[in-house]
Every structure is written in C-alpha cells, then in structure tokens.
C-alpha cells in the first residue's frame, strides 16, 4: 500500500514538466526515504535523478519498497488536470497494475481521481559515485536558461570554463562565435540573484546544448541552479526542490578525438 499526499501539488506538476522531455518512460521508486526516480535519456548521454523526501509530504505511507513504471507523457497528461493549488495524492496497491492520482481543490469542493495504467520498464540502475568537483557554480536558474537558449541559436555545443574570473559559456557556429562571462556577485542583497563560483581547479568542458536546454525545463522548480564540474566527470546541473529534495541532471561531455 502506497499513499503520498503532497499539499503543494504544483511541485509534482513542475517535476514532470522538468523531466518528460528527456525521458519517456521511467520507474518511480518508493521507499521509506522518499519518492525517487533515476533514468537515462534514450541515447544514454544524460541521466536524471529525482528525489522527493518522505518528510516533504503531508502524509507518506509506503509499506514496502515499490517500483512503478510510468509513461511520463501520460503522467503529465493526468497531472495537467490538477489545479496549481490542488493537493495531490498518489495511491498504489501492491500487485496492482495501476496508480491513482487524486486531486483536491484547496476548498475541498472538487475532488478528482485519475487512474493510470502502469508499465513494465527494464531499466538499469546506475551507481553514481560521490565526487569532489573541481568547480561549483551557483547562479539564477533563469539566467542559466537564458544563456543556454541564446547560445543554441549560434551553435550546437557549449564550452563551460571556470576560472578565478568567473564562469564562461562559449559557443561557435556557422554564423560566428559567442562568449558569455558571468562573474561572482554574491554581494547582492537578494540571494536568489547571486552568482557564486567555487573553484579548486580550472575546468573546461564541452557539452551538447540540446541537453542543457532540456534541463532548463526545470527552471520553475528553483530560483537557483547549481552546476558542478570536474574535468573527468559528467556535469551535474541541480535544481533544489524547496524543503523536499532535488532534480539532478547529469550530462556526459563531448571530447576531441
């Protein structure tokens, strides 16, 4: 038996919109820790890891670990029927091949339930090693989204370089080149507008902009994004979900050969 009641139902709607472009079908894992997902895109270049901790739910009952395979597009279709202020409850029964989403309006005058068919999904669960990153950039998520969108009109890849000066996003294409440098500005009064750059070693890595743009669908989840880079590792683009957890996107770099 599974019953997860999320008062801020809009969070689940935003999570789905954040990941469904990257991943079509995925197993949602439910345990005492929380509601989580790990899935790769079809070309195995990017990986998304989601965690919604059990403490973030108003009511969280998960009698035993359960994995539910869902089409994210179908789930998004159902969650789009929930109002932004609705309370969302996810219900599942052991051995059942369906999951139920219940939506309650804030005034309790409208209660809907949507039953969705589950699917069997073969997915390999990867071990993501704990890593010390060479550089960690924190910046406004909207600014990062703007940069990825702007650069993708010039080129297909972005070189992200971190130095003492700040973080530089560069691209080149048939029509020319572009460089955008963001400097640390942590003295600003509003923490959500701050850009901070922690650097242990200079880093420069190349990534496909198509994936970066897809990650920025998570922008509505958080005012800030954290970009962790190491020369030997996939970049991690993390959007924290207030009080609850995170959506992390991992993207393997491109290399010259």
């Amino acid at each position: 038996m599974l019953e997860l009641r999320l008062v801020q139902g809009s969070l689940l709607k935003k999570v789905l919109e954040a990941i469904r472009e990257l991943v079509n079908d995925a197993n949602f894992d439910c345990s005492a820790t929380g509601f989580s997902l790990q899935a790769m895109d079809s070309s195995h270049v990017a990986l998304v890891a989601l965690l919604l901790r059990s403490e973030g739910f108003e009511h969280y009952r998960c009698d035993r670990n359960i994995s539910m395979g869902m089409s994210l597009n179908n789930m998004a279709k159902m969650l789009r029927c929930a109002g932004n202020d609705d309370i969302i409850t996810v219900k599942g029964d052991d051995g059942s091949d369906t999951v139920t989403f219940m939506f309650e309006s804030p005034t309790q005058d409208k209660i809907s339930d949507f039953e969705m068919k589950l699917m069997d999904i073969d997915s390999e669960h990867l071990g993501i090693p704990e890593a010390e990153y060479h550089a960690i950039v924190r910046m406004p998520s909207a600014e990062f989204a703007r940069i990825c969108k702007d650069l993708s009109s010039i080129g297909d890849t972005v070189v992200i370089s971190v130095t003492k000066e700040g973080v530089k996003f560069s691209t080149k294409g048939d029509i020319g080149t572009a460089n955008i440098v963001c400097r640390q500005n942590s003295s600003v009064d509003k923490p959500e507008e701050a850009t901070t750059v922690e650097m242990n070693e200079p880093v420069s890595l190349t990534f496909a902009l198509r994936y970066m743009n897809s990650f920025t669908k998570a922008t509505p989840l958080s005012n800030q994004v954290t970009i962790s880079l190491s020369n030997e590792l996939p970049v991690v683009v993390e959007y924290k979900i207030a009080e609850m957890g995170y959506v992390r996107f991992y993207l393997a770099p491109k290399i010259e050969e």
Binding site: V45, E124, L126, G127, P129, P234, A252, K254, I255, E257
Partner: peptide, 14 residues
C-alpha cells in the same frame, strides 16, 4: 572531431 561520451562510461551499473 568531437565525440559524445555516454553516461555508462562514468557511472557503473549496481
């Protein structure tokens, strides 16, 4: 020539 690496190259199956 640039080649795109995959996630599997970095993260092992568990």
């Amino acid at each position: 020539v640039q080649i795109q690496l995959t996630i599997g190259r970095f993260f092992g199956c568990c």
